Amino acid sequence: MKSKIITLATAALFVVSCGTQKAAPVAAAEPAAPTATETAKAVTLTPELAEGQNLYENNCAKCHKLFEPKKFTREEWTPILVRMGKKAHLDAAQMTSITNYINSQL
C-alpha cells in the first residue's frame, strides 16, 4: 500500500512539474513614469536594435534568466554570446543583431 501511495505521489509530482509554462505577469494598468535618470540612460532602439532585443529576450530566456547588458563588459559579453549562440543554434545574422543590441545598451 505504501509503495502505491509513493508511486502515485511521484507520478503526480512529475505531471505537475511538467505542466505548461507559466504566463508572464500582466503589467499594471498605469506603468510608473520613468525617472529622469532612467530616461537619460534609455537608448532609443532602431528597428534593428529592437529585433536584437526581441531575439535576446525570446531565445536566451528559454534556458536561463536574462542578464542586464550592463552586468558584463563588452569584452566579457563576446565569449558569452559566441558560446550561447552555438547552443541556441542562432545564425550569424541573428547573432549580429543580438550583439549589436547588447553593445548599444552598454
Score class of each variant (00 low, 15 high):
17 S>L: 12
57 E>K: 07
34 P>H: 04
105 Q>W: 04
2 K>H: 13
20 T>A: 03
72 F>V: 01
67 F>Q: 06
13 L>A: 14
101 Y>Q: 14
7 T>N: 10
31 P>K: 09
86 K>G: 11
12 A>L: 15
80 I>M: 15
102 I>W: 02
49 L>C: 06
35 T>D: 12
58 N>W: 03
11 A>R: 08
16 V>D: 02
12 A>D: 07
38 E>C: 01
67 F>A: 08
16 V>Y: 12
80 I>A: 13
20 T>P: 06
58 N>M: 08
105 Q>A: 07
96 T>E: 13
104 S>L: 07
90 L>Q: 03
74 R>E: 10
64 H>Y: 07
79 P>R: 10
56 Y>L: 00
68 E>R: 01
104 S>W: 06
52 G>K: 00
73 T>V: 06
96 T>I: 10
57 E>R: 11
33 A>G: 05
35 T>V: 12
31 P>E: 12
22 K>C: 11
36 A>T: 12
77 W>A: 01
95 M>A: 03
30 E>K: 13
69 P>V: 01
82 V>G: 00
28 A>Y: 07
83 R>M: 09
46 T>S: 15
17 S>A: 13
46 T>Y: 08
103 N>P: 02
78 T>G: 02
84 M>P: 00
35 T>W: 05
62 K>A: 11
33 A>S: 10
97 S>H: 01
20 T>R: 04
85 G>A: 03
75 E>Y: 09
104 S>P: 14
23 A>C: 03
24 A>K: 13
76 E>D: 11
91 D>L: 09
59 N>A: 05
84 M>K: 05
85 G>Y: 02
12 A>R: 11
9 A>K: 04
51 E>T: 09
70 K>E: 13
27 A>S: 07
66 L>D: 05
45 L>S: 05
77 W>K: 01
43 V>R: 09
12 A>Y: 10
26 V>I: 12
62 K>D: 05
82 V>C: 01
34 P>K: 06
29 A>K: 05
26 V>H: 05
24 A>T: 12
11 A>E: 14
61 A>T: 06
36 A>F: 05
50 A>H: 07
99 T>S: 10
59 N>S: 10
39 T>C: 10
47 P>C: 08
85 G>C: 03
42 A>W: 09
27 A>F: 05
60 C>V: 00
91 D>I: 06
5 I>V: 14
40 A>H: 06
87 K>E: 10
76 E>W: 06
21 Q>N: 14
5 I>L: 14
39 T>R: 15
69 P>L: 06
61 A>W: 00
88 A>N: 12
90 L>P: 00
12 A>P: 13
94 Q>L: 03
80 I>P: 00
41 K>Q: 15
41 K>E: 15
38 E>H: 04
8 L>H: 06
59 N>Y: 07
33 A>R: 11
92 A>N: 07
31 P>A: 12
19 G>A: 15
66 L>I: 07
41 K>I: 08
62 K>L: 12
101 Y>N: 09
57 E>W: 04
77 W>V: 07
85 G>S: 09
93 A>H: 06
22 K>W: 12
62 K>Q: 13
13 L>P: 00
56 Y>E: 00
11 A>N: 13
